[in-house]
Design a protein around this nucleic acid. Structure first.
Length: 503
RNA sequence: GGGCCGCUAGCUCAGUUGGCAGAGCACUGGACUUUUAAUCCAGGUGUGCCGGGUUCGAGCCCCGGGCGGCUCACCA
């Protein structure tokens, strides 16, 4: 922990030299009746618009256009009676030119005492310097907000990852790529919504607080509702509520929102993460594979200009069609021998042990085969791959496979060794769903904290009749990681979870 | 949770065998009216993550703790 971090951030004592200097300046401003925290500023132009409008201005040429810009002061280059400054607004940077000639001596002196980090507004004519830099010739300016803390230095910026995540506001100021990644995230979510809206899906909002955390295998966060005197769980997935929407007749629904899972934190896991789930009546998982291929490849092409992107130094090719394999074939191939449900449980257990998998006693054939897949195949899958037909044992909400009672009509999209999407032909038979829940309940009794719990209302809903439906979930953060070439999920989440900071 | 690594000035980082705690940027003072990592002259940066221990002497060695990164396990 840095010494400075332990200070009360609002305290007046024990400030470092730079912070003391700024507080002294603040007092001097007040003595001169200068309000250091302005009420408002009438900005006329966003910096990006000025750059576009005056891109053809000649070097040394001055326009007759007078602008008012505002932003944070990021650099000051003092040259005696004339100075340059850079300010940053939400759209970009622009240079200011301030001189004693233009401002008069008193205002010019004030300008030179501004600190890097201060917010200012400035008005004047747009011109281009002899060096070709678009610049505002400041005729008047106003301090909008005084900064009491110094910013990190200009070349190296802020590197310390802990400070970058804890004080993302500073990261956003000094590291332009943070803003760029955020904008790719914004554009990705917008593109997903736009694509689904155009296909006639309706976006719905389903409960974050749930009595029974369902729709996935994961440990939930627990909270408590005072008036109802009951425990509630932060949702681990919206799945069961979105299916209720399908039962209600909505036909094509989706939700993009947060899920919460009370599990480990790592470079690909944050306790809260953003998930897209959609449900589509009358289609099966084969339709969904085509749809996902088309949706993702077109969004990636729109956003990145190509369906081939680079991730962590390697190419990722999203050009359809993607490789499709069945889980059983993939495992068989990796093992160099045919495996399947016809084998005895003991034999599968032996193969798992030979491959360094720590077995648990209640695991059946399906779970063991899935573990083998994750260990032997998934960690080697780099290019987008659709893995089909997961065992029923690990898929309590998916429809039984039309050709094999041990399997379900489920696929996952694996890219760069990680699961990006998970989808299936939904199980719509209420009686079969009931018995699947009961099997899960038995696992729960046996100590599996991630086993699915029986959701009686969901079974009741199914009994009213659910049309054949395909459903898909997509990890938005992980998709954005791929699109921004980010190694860690923390790079694509503005405020990732860290251990509490000790002040 | 396990293993490995890191924590020194506001920021980015050096620091020899255990022997006066440093550099660049930032900051302060001075010069400078077209710079953009501005330049030139001068100057001060400090709870060495915290707490113990060893030692004449600890940023450095030992023990305990904190936070972070990577990685393994778990998971999406």
């Amino acid at each position: 922990m840095k010494g400075e971090e332990r200070l009360d951030p609002c305290g007046e004592e024990d400030l470092n030299e730079l912070m003391r200097q700024r507080r002294v300046k603040l007092e001097k401003l007040k003595e001169r009746n200068i309000q250091p925290y302005a009420l408002k500023f009438n900005r006329t132009d966003l910096i990006v618009n000025l750059r576009q409008r005056f891109q053809n201005l000649q070097q040394g040429e001055e326009s007759d256009y007078s602008t008012s810009v505002a932003g944070r002061l990021l650099a000051l280059r003092l040259h005696g009676k004339a100075s340059f400054a850079d300010i940053l607004d939400s759209s970009g940077k622009i240079q200011l030119f301030a001189s004693a000639d233009q401002l008069g001596l008193e205002d010019y002196e004030f300008f030179t005492t501004l600190d890097i980090g201060d917010w200012i507004g400035a008005s004047g004519k747009i011109f281009k310097t002899r060096r070709g830099e678009l610049t505002v010739k400041v005729e008047s300016f106003q301090l909008l907000s005084k900064a009491l803390r110094p910013l990190p230095e200009k070349w190296h910026g802020l590197r310390d990852v802990e400070t970058r995540y804890r004080q993302r506001y500073v990261d956003l100021i000094v590291n332009p790529e943070v803003r760029e990644k955020l904008m790719i995230r914004v554009d990705t979510i917008h593109a997903l919504r736009d694509y689904l809206d155009r296909q006639g899906f309706v976006e719905v909002e389903t409960p974050m607080l749930q009595l029974i955390p369902g729709g996935a295998t994961a440990r939930p966060f627990v909270t408590y509702h005072n008036a109802l005197d009951t425990n509630l769980y932060l949702r681990i997935a919206p799945e069961l509520f979105l299916k209720r929407c399908i039962i209600g007749g909505l036909e094509k629904v989706y939700e993009i929102n947060r899920n919460f899972r009370n599990e480990g934190v790592s470079y690909k896991h944050n306790p809260e993460f953003t998930m897209l789930e959609f449900y589509w009546a009358y289609v099966d998982y084969l339709d969904l594979m085509d749809f996902l291929e088309e949706m993702l490849s077109s969004i990636i092409a729109d956003l990145r200009g190509s369906t081939v992107i680079e991730y962590q130094g390697q190419k990722l090719d999203f050009t359809p069609p993607w490789k499709r394999i069945t889980l059983l074939n993939a495992v068989s191939q990796a093992l160099g021998r045919e495996i399947g449900f016809y084998m005895e449980l003991d034999e599968l257990r032996r193969i798992a042990e030979e491959n360094d998998i720590q077995l648990e006693k209640n695991w059946g054939k399906g779970k063991i085969i899935t573990e083998l897949f994750e260990r032997l195949v998934e960690m080697n899958l780099w290019q987008p791959t659709l893995v089909m037909d997961y065992p029923k044992e690990v898929s309590p909400l998916a429809r039984t496979h039309r050709n094999d009672p041990n399997l379900t009509e489920r696929f996952e999209l694996i890219v760069a060794n990680r699961e990006i999407a998970n989808a299936f032909s939904e199980l719509i038979d209420p009686l079969e769903q009931k018995s699947r829940f009961e099997q899960q309940a038995a696992q729960w009794e046996a100590g599996d904290e991630e086993a699915h719990r029986i959701d009686t209302d969901f079974l009741r809903a199914l009994e009213y009749g659910m049309p054949p439906t395909g459903g898909l979930g997509l990890g938005v953060d992980r998709l954005v990681m791929l699109l921004t070439d980010s190694h860690s999920i923390r790079e694509v989440i503005l405020f990732p979870h860290l251990r509490p900071e000790a002040f």
